[in-house]
């Protein structure tokens, strides 16, 4: 006890620190276990893991990276929302301002490249889960949740693509949503749509089909921009968070990360 404590040790024993991190500085085995158990974030993880599960060459950390990217996108996305107004009048010029007026204006770059990266990491994560056969019982349902997450990730990316309101954006979305016109029964140029009519009255036409519902109009215009904005910034993130919560919960409940028996 004669040795003088350094500043970190004192900090670690201070009442403030201990009130935040109940188990103190994790030095002993017990403290290390408690620090995982007591933290709302860390306890996404179990306390102990089989050796292979923490090896990079097993999981490639791909699910984790996907989640990190999602967080990065959320933060940069919120910052972008400070500047961006989703109207035909302002959208494009706001993007220009972001580039030219805002100090350290790389938020848009991080957001865009991060989004591309997330699509790639989701695919690779799916690929690793497949190649390790980790979708097999008891993890079947979590694979299904994963497929939904993949789909939502693509939708998030797609809705975001429109927001800069430049030629690239509007035409990419036009090409993408044109396909919806041909949805069987629900699109006005889809097979079966003509069946949904009463005498001369067509129920499914260009101003009532699924594409119209998606775009809020017959063309990619003002209301499409607003719809995509709302979906991109609120609707889809909200839904994907729910599925992610289920996904992580199930990884734990299905017996933790898969491994050989």
């Amino acid at each position: 006890m004669s040795k003088k404590k350094n500043i970190f040790q004192r900090l670690g024993e201070s009442p403030v620190w201990k009130s935040i991190f109940r188990s103190g500085v994790p030095r002993t085995r017990r403290q290390r276990m408690m620090s995982v158990l007591n933290s709302v974030f860390l306890h996404l993880h179990p306390v102990r893991l089989p050796r292979h599960a923490v090896k990079l060459k097993f999981t490639w950390c791909m699910g984790g990276l996907t989640f990190f990217l999602y967080l990065v996108l959320t933060i940069t996305g919120i910052l972008l929302m400070f500047y961006y107004r989703p109207t035909v009048e302002y959208a494009y010029t706001d993007i220009i301002d972001l580039r030219e007026q805002v100090p350290l204006g790389i938020m848009r770059e991080i957001h865009r490249w991060g989004a591309h990266a997330m699509v790639i990491t989701v695919w690779l994560h799916m690929f690793r889960v497949f190649m390790t056969g980790s979708y097999k019982p008891p993890r079947e349902f979590n694979w299904v949740v994963g497929v939904i997450l993949l789909f939502l990730t693509l939708l998030l990316s797609f809705t975001g693509y429109l927001l800069p309101w430049d030629q690239l954006a509007i035409w990419a979305v036009t090409v993408g949503t044109n396909m919806a016109r041909a949805t069987p029964f629900l699109g006005h140029e889809g097979p079966g749509a003509a069946l949904l009519s009463l005498g001369d009255i067509n129920f499914v036409h260009a101003a009532s089909d699924i594409r119209f519902a998606l775009l809020g109009g017959r063309f990619v215009g003002e209301s499409a921009l607003l719809r995509f904005y709302v979906l991109h910034c609120i609707g889809l993130p909200f839904i994907i968070m729910i599925f992610m919560a289920v996904h992580f919960w199930r990884v734990r409940k299905d017996g933790g990360i898969s491994g050989p028996t």
Binding site: P26, R29, R32, M33, S35, V36, L42, H45, P46, V47, R48, L49, P50, R51, A53, V54
Partner: peptide, 10 residues
Amino acid sequence: DKVLVWPDLV
């Protein structure tokens, strides 16, 4: 033979 999440995974 398991490893601890703190510090090995974090």
